[in-house]
Amino acid sequence: MRKLRIIGAACTAAALAATGMAFAQSDGVDHAKADAEFAKFRAEMEDSNPAELFEMKGEELWKAKRGPKNVSLAESCDMGLGIGKLDGAYVKMPRYFADADKVMDAERRIVWCMTEKQGFSFDEIAKRPFASGNYTPDITSLVTFVAGHSRNMKFAVPIKDPKVKEAWEIGKEIAAYRAGPYDFSCNTCHGSDGKRIRMQNLPNLAKPEGAIKGVFGWPGYRMTGGVMLTSQWRMNDCFRQQRFPEPKYASDTVTYLLTYMTATANGQLYKGPGIKR
């Protein structure tokens, strides 16, 4: 933790003859066809997405009086459009909340309401914030329920708000920050067009058409393992694969990245909680 990286001071001037050979670029796989087949499969699954089960569960949780303060989120939680107003709230987040003096994505906001309004302990929620196996945290169902109220609406993150704009700018820089044993940043994989890791397509988050692919399917039901996962989870797992340490749950870093991606996708359609392979 405290050990310093040894930084070499010697400047050896070894000359290097770079071998400037052309790389062969051939492929042999019909990726367009494979993508089209997968899109068909996804459309079929979207028609009966198990995410709906979590929306139902989330609705129950949203309306129930819970927590040490015995209040419901329905009667206490403002998702940006006023208490009790959920239609279109998800596609207008992240946004700045004066009561918390923070820019918040939907999940962070619900966690804030659960701690501030209902009296739940943040540390308890943050202990196991993501679904695995047969376990689905309440917060995941709540996010899915709230997201369902923005189905078929366009992303409209209030980017003109200076606080949101600043979050977007910092998020953009976080996405470019290279560190760790492999020198990876978010942009190493998600900063240019038409790239893949193995067979997985990598959207270019710097462009609206890539950014929408990064945000539109979340929260999403992952068929592998049958778990419901949120965009907070997605960011967490990206950092894992980036070989970084773990981002703290519901922290600025994650919100700023989500601000960068979601606002870049502004104007494009959110189809509701999604389904993943």
Partner: peptide, 15 residues
């Protein structure tokens, strides 16, 4: 169309 909420454990998986 019916969506069911159930773990559907096979009995072969290990934790």
């Amino acid at each position: 169309r019916v969506l069911m909420s159930h773990p559907m454990e096979t009995g072969q998986r290990k934790d």
